[in-house]
Design a protein around this nucleic acid. Structure first.
Length: 275
DNA sequence: GGGATTTCCTGTTGGC
DNA sequence: TGCCAACAGGAAATCC
């Protein structure tokens, strides 16, 4: 499931291959769920056909394609979305929702569960795209500090992990890295966000940055669906300390890892190390 | 407005 | 072996 490290891995892999390429043809099915009501296929084709890709950026878990028209193509991979390049004419796999024929190959967006989405933003209006609008700070930017995180948690009664998943105090964390960051910071994910002490917020801020940077260096985490270059797996799965390790021993104290349900999601943590 | 819950979706897994 | 229910989860919608 692509979170910030997986999206960043895909971005850095594709950026060099896409920069300067022209979109010759757009193939998509009108009414496809990945477009929701945000953009019609007709408008997407008008906006993309003949345009040059000037760069591929990322905001949180969103991939942002900058076009020479000033427009932006925005893709969220959801849970099972993948982007990759095919040879021209090579058939796309099942669940291909968007295909961009470029100069020498085709970029395809494949997503079986259709939790992903494809959007379009006009010049200067990237911040108005649903999802990007209320997105918190980038965790790996210098501007993301303990003070900034504290401001996002202040007064909040939701569990700290739920707040992290909301993308508002900070962008880019999903279930895996929210669990891992809480573990590294020694914070019980069920505690109210607003009750964390300054030293705890500082530890959480540092843990978020650390776990994301480490995972990017490992090309992300592959549990099941996520793959990066030509089907390669992300190597961070071997370094997970609590996520998906219910009943196993805590690597720090030996206590059994617990699992709790939090708003319909599973949270993994050590009762002894996380308070 | 905040917080909790539900919904969307399909491939995989576990139980019977 | 085969069927079916449960489960996985990001983000938006809905309810209280």
């Amino acid at each position: 499931m692509p979170e910030l490290p997986e999206v960043e891995t895909i971005r850095s892999l594709l950026a060099g291959k896409l920069r300067g390429k022209t979109i010759r043809e757009v193939t998509a099915r009108p009414g496809d769920r990945v477009f929701r009501d945000t953009v019609s296929v007709a408008r997407l084709k008008r906006a993309l056909t003949g345009r040059k890709i000037e760069g591929l950026g990322r905001r949180g878990k969103y991939l942002v394609f900058a076009l020479d028209s000033g427009d932006f193509l925005v893709i969220h991979l959801g849970m099972t979305g993948v982007l990759y390049l095919l040879k021209p004419g090579e058939p796309g796999p099942e669940h291909t929702h968007l295909r961009l024929a470029l100069d020498k190959n085709d970029l395809v967006f494949v997503d079986p569960r259709t939790f992903g989405r494809v959007m379009l933003a006009s010049p200067g209006k990237l911040d108005e795209v649903p999802g990007l609008r209320d997105l918190g700070p980038e965790p790996l930017d210098d501007s993301f500090t303990a003070e900034v995180l504290a401001a996002g948690l202040r007064g909040r009664k939701s569990p700290v992990k739920s707040l992290l998943l909301s993308q508002k105090p900070v962008a880019g964390l999903g279930n895996i890295y929210a669990d891992e960051a809480c573990f590294r910071a020694g914070i019980d994910p069920l505690r109210h966000g607003g009750e964390l002490k300054p030293a705890e917020v500082e530890a959480l801020c540092a843990s978020i940055r650390e776990v994301l940077a480490e995972s990017i260096a490992c090309k992300g985490t592959t549990i099941r669906d996520y793959r990066w270059d030509q089907g390669k797996s992300g190597e961070f799965a071997a370094r997970l300390q609590v996520y998906g390790r219910t009943g196993e021993r805590c690597p720090r104290c030996g206590e059994k890892i617990k699992r709790a349900m939090l708003g319909g999601r599973s949270a993994h943590f050590c009762r002894n190390c996380q308070r």
